[in-house]
Design a protein around this nucleic acid. Structure first.
Lengths: 250, 250
DNA sequence: TAGCCATGGTGAACGGTGTTCACAACTTTC
DNA sequence: GAAAGTTGTGAACACCGTTCACCATGGCTA
């Protein structure tokens, strides 16, 4: 009965249901609990049926990563929607706070997407390995860093206190800047290239390092001291970063 | 034969062999591969025998964390031994570089100890959960942060540019400072408490955030841009941190 | 010295897992 | 209506953690 019903629905529906169930298991019981048989059980199906949709459990987990990236980027966009267009400072804060809040609320998803060793084994043939910087991860990175980038650019941004840019990084930074500008242009945001200096791009990288560092440490409980309430520390970091970049923080 | 031989050796020997084998599996094939049966196989033993030494696989993994912490702290101490007593800057650099190098060389161990969700399930009875801040993790944190702390103190340290310390953090920071001073005194390093201001302690926390952030991002390949060689970036961060704290970097 | 008993091993067994395969049922296409 | 393709099933294999009854060994005490 349910089987007949399922077969009538389009393939993409079942595909979505599978990933939803997997997400649920991941969120509630961690990576080890997202098991083919558990998913199948939940869907009233047998485990081998899942192989009609995914090549293996690893493959499914990889696609889960994509879903998660899309999801978190959606969350951030939603948070951003509530901020007035002009208030760039609030936008930066909203995105960063949103990321932290999401990570704390979904530690297992965070661990899977942002804190798993890169698939050391090369995937079969040119496929994206594990869930590293692939299309969807880019999607997230884009929504995240592009938002930050747009914010940093539309605002009169003054580069932070001078830091020598390592020479070996210049090429990477230039590539990143170009990609960023292209991505912004793609979204209708025209930016004169001279507004986005390499030092600003470099600062964004360091911004990400600190943001990620704090969030990961908090999610994993790996601060070297018992921090009874990490939120003020996070806020302090945000204002520090914001003032460094020349944003006026209330 | 081998069995009779094993029985004659003291219990601690077998215990050590088990963890060595487990470490090997972890390092070479990741967490999922450290399996009771695989360990037993390697030791010429059956899996149930392992239960004479550990209550469960999770228990074994927890103790593995302790071993790893001790190991990395040993590595750092060794690195430190090669630095002249007075050259505090070199000492800071050595510890940080050593940590990065170890993490890059042992990504799976790094992920297990420093990037695993805290055991959300309370361990049976007052036991240390997962491998979070427990005795051994403290051991690592001590060797690490204490080394950094000693270095920062023996040197004439001037607090970095003023940052408002969140009021909610003051109590935590004071507790940490006291613990740090006690730990230093325990190792024969007498330090006048007024030399270690709360702002310095706070800076050490932020130091750790950035160090951890960079290392984790590099280990997991989660930089938002393709960084062809992250080492100069790491070095740049180190010199930035060092100069901020008033160390003279060559 | 004889017996006891804690220690540390064994093999069998249970339920769970990923994965493969032959096969069946249903849908679509020719 | 037959052929082909799609999507499910159930059995099976190998592996996993874990429990259990059982057995050998060695050191202790009566």
């Amino acid at each position: 009965m349910a089987q007949a019903t399922r077969r009538e629905r389009p393939r993409s529906d079942t595909e979505r249901e599978i990933r939803e169930t997997a997400r649920n298991l991941l969120v509630r019981h961690g990576r080890e609990a997202v098991t083919l048989r558990a998913i199948a059980r939940e869907l009233g199906i047998t485990a081998p049926a899942l192989y009609r949709y995914y090549n293996s459990r690893e493959d499914l987990l990889r696609q889960l990563c994509d879903d998660i990236c899309l999801d978190v980027s959606g969350h951030l966009s939603a948070d951003l929607a509530g901020i007035p267009e002009g208030d760039t400072t609030a936008q930066v804060f909203a995105v960063c706070r949103g990321f932290r809040r999401w990570a704390l609320a979904h530690p297992h998803e965070f661990a899977l997407v942002f804190a798993s060793p890169e698939g050391s084994k090369a995937p079969p043939a040119g496929e994206a390995g594990e869930c590293g910087p692939g299309p969807a991860h880019d999607q997230f990175g884009r929504v995240f860093l592009m938002v930050a980038g747009r914010v940093l650019i539309t605002h009169e941004v003054r580069p932070p206190r001078p830091v020598a840019i390592p020479r070996a990084l210049v090429a990477d930074l230039e590539a990143f800047r170009d990609a960023l500008l292209a991505s912004l242009a793609e979204h209708g945001i025209e930016v004169p290239p001279e507004r986005l200096g390499l030092d600003t791009v470099y600062f964004m990288l360091q911004f990400w390092v600190r943001l990620y560092g704090h969030v990961a440490l908090e999610v994993f409980g790996r601060f070297p001291i018992a921090v009874s309430d990490p939120e003020p520390m996070f806020e302090s970091m945000l204002t520090d970063l914001a003032t460094q970049v020349g944003l006026q923080v209330p």
